[in-house]
């Protein structure tokens, strides 16, 4: 399996553990991720909050690069671990179906996007989340077959965030109210998934810097629920969610007046543990809240 790969800016910084574990897990499963040469930022929330056209153009540059790279390499799909990048890349492609919009985007670019085919075929590739590709393309049975250290006894709250499956008409993934892909993946790893009703509740997204009160309040709600439902840890698939729940956990605690000690791991880190990958591939030391105590449940020792 070979996918073109768009890491997203946070993968090189604040979510470096997501990036390291994603690459390691894919490599262990025999999935080849071909990173786009010279990819640029999708613009994230600031771009689409500023203007739809600007946002689409920043994404379109990358989609054009991907189209070219995939033609050369034979990669079948474009993958990204980051739901925010995913949403922007998918939304841009969605809007580009409108010819008038496409022409305006082209005017912002150095060279126009590859034009639609004679029957209206879209040459720009659709983007998929790493989670979707692992669950739907690689398959849970195949993943389960490679598990060497089952996460038996580990109670995990699966947290998807709001972007992975919304807006449903564009994201076209899982159930927008009750997604279960990550649940099933974690179960395939042997973990016990707690029924987490706040799966798709917003964590506060990018408001952390300008309005910390918002993220603290919303993240506290999620941490409260995970604690109440008896989770040992939260599994996430989004760098922003991770930052708000892990790095900003103390800020949330201040807002709610409750102290938390809730490890928050990327699902790829949990996959790496279950697949028996070396610690250097898991980057657990990058987490703010140490998962050491929780991981003792499955006999995994890490230096706190």
């Amino acid at each position: 399996m070979k996918f073109a790969y768009y890491p997203g800016c946070s993968g090189k910084g604040t979510s470096v553990e997501y990036e390291i574990s994603t690459k390691a897990v894919c490599s262990a499963l025999g999935i080849y991720l071909q990173e786009l040469a010279d990819w640029s930022c999708c613009g994230s929330t600031p771009a689409h909050a500023t203007d739809t056209l600007l946002s689409a153009a920043l994404s379109a540059r990358n989609l054009s690069l991907a189209a070219e790279a995939m033609k050369q390499s034979g990669a079948t799909k474009l993958a990204t671990p980051c739901p925010s990048c995913l949403a922007n890349l998918k939304t841009a492609r969605h809007h580009m179906a409108n010819q008038e919009f496409r022409r305006k985007v082209d005017k912002l670019l150095d060279s126009p996007c590859p034009p639609l085919g004679p029957k209206g075929e879209e040459p720009l590739p659709e983007t998929y989340s790493i989670l979707q590709l692992l669950v739907e393309d690689y398959g849970l049975e195949n993943i389960a077959a490679k598990v060497t250290r089952p996460l038996k006894g580990l109670k995990i709250a699966p947290y998807y965030g709001c972007l992975l499956s919304r807006p449903a008409p564009i994201m076209q993934f899982d159930d927008p109210e009750n997604p279960t892909s990550m649940d099933r993946l974690l179960e395939a790893l042997g973990a016990e998934v707690v029924p987490f009703p706040l799966k798709t509740e917003c964590c506060g997204a990018a408001m952390g810097i300008p309005r910390r009160d918002i993220t603290a309040r919303l993240s506290a709600r999620l941490l409260d629920a995970a604690t109440t439902f008896g989770a040992d840890m939260i599994a996430v698939a989004c760098p922003l969610c991770h930052m708000n729940l892990d790095l900003r956990q103390e800020q949330a605690a201040k807002a709610s007046g409750v102290s938390y000690d809730m490890p928050v791991l990327y699902f790829t880190q949990l996959m790496g543990i279950a697949l028996g990958l070396p610690d250097s591939d898991l980057a657990l030391d990058k987490l703010s809240v140490s998962p050491a105590a929780a991981l003792q449940k499955i006999g995994k020792e890490i230096s706190a």
């Binding site: 029924p195 629920a225 109440t228």
Partner: peptide, 8 residues
Amino acid sequence: SCIQPNGR
């Protein structure tokens, strides 16, 4: 908008 069990 939604109903969520509170775990208690």
